[in-house]
Design a protein around this nucleic acid. Structure first.
Lengths: 210, 210
DNA sequence: GTCTATATGCGGATAGAC
DNA sequence: GTCTATCCGCATATAGAC
């Protein structure tokens, strides 16, 4: 942590706390305390709590962008697995965003538009991903199938980690990581996968269900 | 509204406000005002805000229970559509529960166990539903397929309405209702549906994608 | 059961010294 | 840049009269 600016440390600590306890439950006093600075100093760097949230959201956008980029370049199932894993790791690192998204948007309405734009970008990328797989003969799916698959993928990437919060602790350890999330998403595609790509799916199935 | 007790009116107004603006954003003062009573009177009926939330949660459980019951009695696809529709209507009527579930559980940890129990009951019911469809020859799916399908159904029923908040307004009007939610869930089953049951799916597809 | 008035505390934000 | 001290407002919860 030495060498990093106070400003960065505030953002890091905030992210950590927001992820763990939720944005609503973490006060600015708390952030200051855990950063080992005074409330006044915190206010020097960020005039409002909203500014902290907004900065973190921008970082989230920056972290997700290359994942979506990668998604539009796939040509095989294991590419998909990789990009899904990347994406879920990014979302996991900023899980406070989708954790209670309704509250976040209610509190800071300015984030509604960028949040929706992000989801829309995700939808477009997912659609492209499915279309490419279909073109490559990995997927056998109609236009309508692809549309629904893309929607399923976006829904899953945005909401999965919120859902794991609702599964009992023992099951949660099994479902909580980005690995299972990626596997889960792949199973959405699996009924449409044809040819030797199935082998890869079966390999993953053994890994996550065995 | 005449004839209903003040206590019931408080619960109704709270539900309405919680659903619309989120539990965190609605104060007890606000509830009192909208119920046309004083804060003191509110406190006479419910000592704490938590008691209101807990009571509403119990009502939610009561509303969901028959839906899960119905789910375990299906034998054809249109039964599924009916029970899904029922379920989504129930969840929609109490959408504040899953709206920011992480916040709710953080604020009132006593609800964590009942909430997880509810999700688990939903999972068991979904599993049973899929198994019955498979036994009836409507679904062609392995044990592992059924396990994942059940998980997909639970995930969708609990998180779908939170997700719709993230789609832009024009798309939202299309996706927001219980009808589309039920259709979406059915498409998760559709790749496994065999025989004449497909006709029903195509009928629904025309209705929701056309 | 219902009211008015108020206690109490917390969270966001700020002032001003160093 | 960083601190201490503090203001302000809101939300929960309560007291006590009617």
């Amino acid at each position: 942590m030495a060498g990093t600016s106070t400003r960065d440390r505030i953002l890091e600590v905030s992210l950590e706390l927001f992820n763990r306890e939720g944005m609503a439950a973490v006060s600015t006093h708390r952030i200051a305390t855990e950063t080992d600075i005074s409330p006044g100093n915190l206010h020097y760097h960020f005039k409002t709590k909203q500014q902290i949230v907004t900065w973190l959201f921008r970082r989230f956008e920056g972290r997700i962008a290359p994942c979506l980029e990668a998604a539009t370049g796939v040509s095989a199932i294991d590419d998909v697995w990789l990009t899904l894993h990347m994406t879920f790791e990014a979302i996991d690192a900023f899980r406070f965003v989708y954790r209670d998204i309704a509250f976040l948007l209610h509190e800071y309405p300015e984030l509604e538009e960028p949040a929706q734009t992000l989801v829309m970008a995700n939808l477009i990328a997912s659609r492209e991903l499915c279309a490419r797989l279909a073109a490559a003969g990995v997927l056998k799916a109609s236009i309508e199938d692809i549309e629904m698959l893309a929607l399923q993928m976006v829904f899953t990437t945005t909401c999965w980690f919120s859902f794991t919060r609702l599964t009992p602790r023992n099951a949660r350890s099994k479902h909580a990581g980005p690995g299972f999330a990626a596997y889960y998403t792949l199973t959405l595609l699996s009924p449409y996968v044809v040819g030797e790509a199935r082998d890869y799916l079966n390999y993953l199935r053994g890994k996550y269900l065995g």
